[in-house]
Every structure is written in C-alpha cells, then in structure tokens.
Design a binder for these strands. Structure first.
Length: 255
DNA sequence: ATGGCTTGAGTGTCAAGA
C-alpha cells in the first residue's frame, strides 16, 4: 500500500497537477493539506473520476485537509477531539485496516508570536490525542505538513534558521514527543540523500538552488514502521509551472 | 529593503504562508 502526503497550496489551482500526479504515482491513500476550499466546492467528482474516494474538512481561504483513497474511507473524524479550534487542520479515517490521520500543523509565524503559542498548544493537543489513538489503532499512520524541520540536516542552512520558526527547540521538542509515543519518522527509516527537503520558498529561486526545509512527514506506528519498504520525496511536481511550494512524500507499507 | 512569490478575497490591496 502506497500512502502519501502533499500540501497542495490551493486544491483549486493545483487540481491538474494532483490528477496528473495520481495517474503517475497511483498511490492508494493521499493526505492533502491547504486545500483552501469549503466542502461544498470540493472537487469530489473529478477526484472520483480519477479513481479515488475522498473525505474533506475545509474552510474558505485558509487551511483545509482531505483524504483520498482507492477504497472508501470509514470512521471519519475531523479535528482533534476536546480541542476547540475553528481552523480545519485534521481529518482521520480508516482505510482498509489502517488508521490514517492527516494533519496540517499551524505555521507559527514567528517565535514568540500569538500564532507560535497556538502552534505549541496545538502540537500538545495532537500529542495527547495520538497517544490514545496509538492504543486504539496498532496500524496508525500520521501524515501531513508538520511545519517543523526536526533536525539540522533537514534545513538547507541551519545557521540562518537557528532558533527561527519551524526550527526552534520548543517546536523540535514537540515533534520529538510524537516520536517518543512510538511513532517513527518514515523518511529516516532509510538511507536518504543529503539535503532532502519537502518545501522551498517561492522567492529567490529557492527550489532551483535547493534552499529548502523538510517539514512534511509520514509518521508510522511500530507495526507499520516494521512493514515499511521505502519512503521518498517526489520533487517532480515542484518542477512544473505554477507548482505548490511543497513536494509530496510517499511511503510504501505492507497492506 | 521584514523585501523577495503565491493564493484568496474581491477590484484595491492586504493577510497569510514558511
């Protein structure tokens, strides 16, 4: 089973890229972030024509998440339970025998800002919830845009980014706490090229110069990690005209 | 030069992303 995550930065703009990519990669499950569309406008019919069922949790202008699947997603849950949040950042569903959680972690804007405090609170709520979810679902996968570069090797220039949002120690600590629940960073289960990133700023030719960060992740429960055969970043969609600023991440796990 | 692009909203120009 091929599972993937992609921050599309507007599903409306990126739908042609998404449909081409689905045809090329043929993933079984895809988690999308920053769909930026209300559920009433979600392009479910065109995605269905491409061979995928979908569930979504969106809002106008900002945020928005969705899960696409070859089989029908079941037991759908939106939002982190018992965490009041008007922003649509979480959707979870069972796909086959696997619990799939799609997350769009807040950006945090800048260290010390209100949005940064919200990000840390949000990550703490996610951690508490996933601790329970791991007990309930031995086959748990958490995929999404975590807006955290876990280590210096996930940053093109650690000196420039030191202490900045996405790289600050409190954010990295929050990410490590997810790993300490037992979740594994799928990408790091394997040898990977140096300077592997999933996001590049639109400005300053950052992609061409590979000035990026690795902030999109696939976390796997111990059982899924043991059955994971590979995990890669697909840079190809980032090379297209009018790309998302994020590249998809894909993992192969036994069905 | 807290700029540089891109998107959505909405029609002038700003918020937000990371």
């Amino acid at each position: 089973m091929k599972i993937a995550t992609w921050n599309v930065n507007s599903l409306k703009v990126r739908l042609p890229h998404l449909l081409d990519w689905l045809a090329r990669q043929s993933p079984d499950v895809v988690c999308l972030q920053e769909t930026k569309t209300e559920d009433a406008n979600f392009p479910a019919a065109r995605i269905e024509s491409a061979g995928y069922r979908s569930v979504c949790s969106g809002q106008k202008t900002y945020n928005g998440v969705a899960i696409l699947s070859r089989t029908t997603p079941e037991d759908i849950q939106c939002d982190v339970p018992q965490f009041e949040d008007p922003q649509k950042r979480v959707i979870a569903a069972n796909v086959g025998g696997t619990r799939v959680v799609c997350v769009y972690v807040p950006n945090g804007q800048s260290v010390g800002s209100e949005k940064y405090a919200y990000k840390l609170k949000w990550l703490a709520a996610l951690e508490a919830w996933l601790k329970d979810e791991l007990k309930r679902h031995p086959r748990l996968a958490v995929l999404g845009d975590f807006n955290v570069a876990p280590e210096d090797r996930d940053v093109h220039d650690p000196k420039v980014w030191e202490g900045q949002v996405l790289c600050s120690e409190p954010e990295r600590r929050a990410f490590r706490r997810l790993l300490e629940l037992g979740l594994k960073d799928g990408f790091r289960l394997f040898d990977q090229p140096e300077k592997s990133f999933t996001w590049w700023d639109y400005r300053m030719g950052a992609f061409r110069r590979n000035l990026g960060l690795r902030i999109d992740h696939i976390l796997l429960s111990p059982e899924l990690a043991a059955q994971c055969a590979g995990c890669i970043i697909d840079r190809e969609p980032r090379t297209l005209e009018r790309p998302s600023d994020h590249a998809p991440v894909i993992a192969e796990v036994s069905a």
